[in-house]
Design a protein around this nucleic acid. Structure first.
Lengths: 146, 146
DNA sequence: TTGTTTACTTGACCACCTCAAGTATCGGGG
DNA sequence: CCCCGATACTTGAGGTGGTCAAGTAAACAA
């Protein structure tokens, strides 16, 4: 073992550490969103809207029922952060697109997130690269597992 | 730069990676909890109950309003997973304790989580140690930041 | 004792989430 | 062509999680 690292973290310890960081990050996101008048769910949806996206696709991304999306988009649309447009090639489909204001709001939320995340600045280039590599290896196995 | 690692991950890339892993882990947790008839919030509460814990302490841990905890504990208590006991030294306080059944359920949820988290097994001892060290450095800065 | 603070509950209200049912459209056979 | 099954979305009912404001009870301090 390399003397520069801790003895031997258990799988459980790593899981707890990941959970703690995940929770903290989620709370940061929620706080940034709230600061701009959004719930975390609304911010999450807005963050997905790079281009027009059918309601169904949104439900798939959020891993939730389609009827749920209706309500979320209703509220975003009521605040003019988002628009429903008919799909030209399939009249059943409604594409959701972010308005200028919507794009603006989510941009500010992202900025606020980055600003508050100084913890990542304490890593030097090598450390960032190592962390990125290890986390990237973790991600694929993190999907639906049965 | 050490030739063994990727070029140079940006802060944003690392944030996205952490977010993706956090989301995946949370969904796993929710699924495991649901499999045992619990919502993720209920499971989270149950997981905190190593010993008797006042309602207020629970609210602090969950970073939410005290009145919210009342409802959550109501539902857990209705299913006999948890009990409210009067605090002997302060009659205002009600201590929440997990019942045998409650402990059993949360134990099974934890087991299911570990079982499904094979991704961590792909790391060797050195890698785990390195990851643990880096994540541990990240955690402190992940708290309330303004 | 009187007043302040703390712990918990209640009720009103909203967001989110699911399920079941309904409407409209699409697409593929007869 | 018409019918029929699948798909996209909405609606409504019902439950959970979350906040805030107000109320009760107990502790505590002056």
């Amino acid at each position: 073992m390399t003397a520069t690292t801790s003895p031997a973290p258990t799988k459980l310890q790593l899981m707890e550490l990941l959970a703690a960081i995940g929770t903290a990050q989620w709370r940061d996101f929620a706080a940034a969103a709230a600061h701009h008048g959004l719930t975390s769910t609304q911010a999450k949806v807005l963050a997905q809207l790079d281009g027009p996206l059918p309601m169904r696709a949104l439900a798939t991304l959020l891993v939730c029922d389609a009827s749920n999306v209706t309500g979320i988009i209703d509220r975003l649309e009521a605040r003019a952060l988002v628009r429903r447009e008919p799909d030209p090639s399939d009249r059943r489909v409604k594409n959701v697109v972010a308005t200028d204001e919507g794009r603006d709001v989510i941009r500010r939320v992202r900025e606020e997130m980055q600003a508050t995340r100084g913890a990542l600045d304490t890593l030097d280039a090598d450390e960032s690269a190592t962390l990125h590599t290890l986390l990237a290896r973790l991600r694929p196995g993190m999907e639906k597992s049965a």
